[in-house]
């Protein structure tokens, strides 16, 4: 029955892992802006399609 020590310790360790992950996320600023990421994740597909274009046109335009 002393396996209970093992099990409880594992459960606490898992909980601590999640806790650390949470602190890390807050510190990284992931909770500062809770709207933009939800929109941003929808953009990825468009990006690939346009990549090959060279940047030279851009430069001319700027001048």
């Amino acid at each position: 029955m002393s396996v209970i020590y093992l099990l409880i310790s594992i459960s606490i360790i898992v909980a601590v892992c999640f806790f650390v992950a949470f602190i890390w996320a807050v510190k990284n600023g992931q909770y500062d802006d809770d709207y933009t990421p939800s929109v941003r994740m929808l953009f990825d597909d468009e990006l690939k399609k346009v990549k090959p274009k060279s940047k030279r046109i851009t430069k001319e335009k700027q001048i």
Binding site: D33, Y35, T36, K59
Partner: peptide, 11 residues
Amino acid sequence: EGIISSQVNFP
């Protein structure tokens, strides 16, 4: 050219 990245904070 020269802009590395940009990130919007919508709120």
